[in-house]
């Protein structure tokens, strides 16, 4: 019966050798998911497009002769003009549209990133704690979420603007603080099912403290739904930002964002179409690609869903 307890001298020797040598790495679930994602052509293409847009927004401004707030008095309301360096034209104030689109995209990406990050951090911790402890803790915490849901968020944003002034980053931290509600609900639901899994019980039997169990055993297993929901939150926040900017609550001139650019471009779409087309193309491709990435991630992380 040597095979069972493996008392063979050979095996022991092998074990000793491995103590100094590294054992082969296994395939983690994340690696598996990445492999599946790479097979999804739409998602891969989207990743490239999004990366391009990010580079465009953050590196682009350094390569242009014009900055987003510089006024070219000789070229006001002009279409694309390569000689003057206005590749996609200028706006009513003579500012270079390409530079403004780059700055606007940058702003939209930053607010989306910040707000999503905030909503993920708060939502995951809140949801995991509520789900894990359950009972009264859960009831109180989730009723609070319900109440927050019931409040009109435009009102909140107005209050936030009043408190923080029109500082875009703080404003979108504020939006993130509201966006976490849905994330918390999703995370709580997942936690409820994960905490019934036997490996959580095993961790308890192994003497782990509740906090250790949440961090080591529950949160890592939330990756799938959290990543998927976060990729879908990014476009949502970009849209929210556009909406708020449209209402005049968003970023402040001369800074701009994709939403602001579109809101300025749409009334003059017939006479100055380049003011609308540029930002619209960037926004639409960004949203489409993020949705494709979200879908791709869902298929990759949760292959049973297909």
């Amino acid at each position: 019966m040597a095979g069972i307890t493996g008392k063979d001298a050979l095996l022991t020797e092998y074990a000793n050798r491995l103590e100094t040598l590294d054992a082969p790495k296994g395939r983690s679930l994340t690696q598996d998911a990445v492999r599946r994602l790479v097979r999804n052509k739409a998602a891969v293409l989207s990743v490239f497009v999004v990366s391009f847009i990010i580079l465009f927004a953050f590196i682009g401004p350094y390569l242009l002769p014009w900055t987003y707030d510089k006024i070219d008095w000789s070229n006001i309301r002009k279409g694309p003009d390569f000689d003057a360096g206005h590749f996609v034209g200028t706006d009513q104030n003579g500012r270079d549209m390409l530079a403004r689109i780059m700055q606007g995209t940058q702003m939209s990406l930053i607010v989306a990133g910040v707000a999503t990050l905030v909503s993920v951090i708060i939502g995951v911790i809140y949801g995991a704690v509520a789900g894990y402890f359950g009972g009264k803790v859960d009831a109180v915490m989730m009723r609070f979420v319900d109440i927050m849901y019931a409040l009109p968020y435009i009102l909140f944003v107005i209050i936030l603007v009043v408190i923080f002034g029109r500082n875009p980053v703080l404003l979108f931290v504020g939006i993130g603080c509201l966006e976490w509600l849905t994330m918390a609900r999703i995370v709580r639901g997942q936690t409820l099912s994960i905490k019934e899994r036997e490996f959580v019980e095993a961790a308890k039997a192994g003497g782990a403290k509740p906090w250790t169990i949440i961090i080591r055993h529950i949160v890592p297993n939330l990756t799938g739904p959290v990543v998927i929901y976060a990729t879908l939150t990014v476009p949502e926040i970009i849209l929210t930002e556009s909406f708020l900017s449209y209402l005049g609550l968003g970023v402040q001139e001369p800074q701009t964002s994709l939403g602001t650019l579109i809101s300025f471009g749409s009334p003059v779409a017939e006479t100055l179409p380049w003011m609308l087309i540029g930002p619209a193309v960037v926004l639409v491709s960004l949203l489409l690609c993020l949705t494709y990435i979200g879908d791709g991630l869902r298929d990759a992380l949760d292959p049973k869903d297909r």
């Binding site: 095979g3 054992a23 790495k25 296994g26 983690s28």
Partner: peptide
């Protein structure tokens, strides 16, 4: 009865 080389597998 597990091989030591399995230590880093999932």
């Amino acid at each position: 009865g597990l091989l030591p080389e399995m230590i880093n597998r999932y």
